[in-house]
Amino acid sequence: MSWRDFKRKVQRQFSEYLEIPGDVMLDLPKIILVGNIQLFIENHRGIIEYTPEGVRVSVGEGEVAVTGQDLMLRNILPDELCVEGKIRSLSFL
């Protein structure tokens, strides 16, 4: 167990103990999916790839990939992002 994994474990246990939401404590993305038409990602780290068929967004660790049709970035702020269109799948890479 590396030092980094140990730190994460302690942080998780700490946040569970104090009931602090993970997105605040652990720097995790908060993803809100509205039906299959809208997707909000809070706490992102920028866009990796964007095409009308798929969007890859960098989050704290790894990426979130959205596939669909006619996707569009409705708005983009330093830590918030909204994707609109016909969403087919959402996966963590």
């Binding site: 866009i47 964007y50 095409t51 569009m72 970035l73 983009i76």
Partner: peptide, 26 residues
């Protein structure tokens, strides 16, 4: 162009209605 979007967003510039047109332009 994604880099452009990221950098702009990172610097606090509001961008909205981002849409990819056919030939790789946004």
């Amino acid at each position: 162009p994604e880099k452009f979007v990221n950098m702009a967003a990172g610097r606090g510039i509001f961008l909205w209605d981002i849409f990819k047109t056919g030939d790789g332009a946004i």
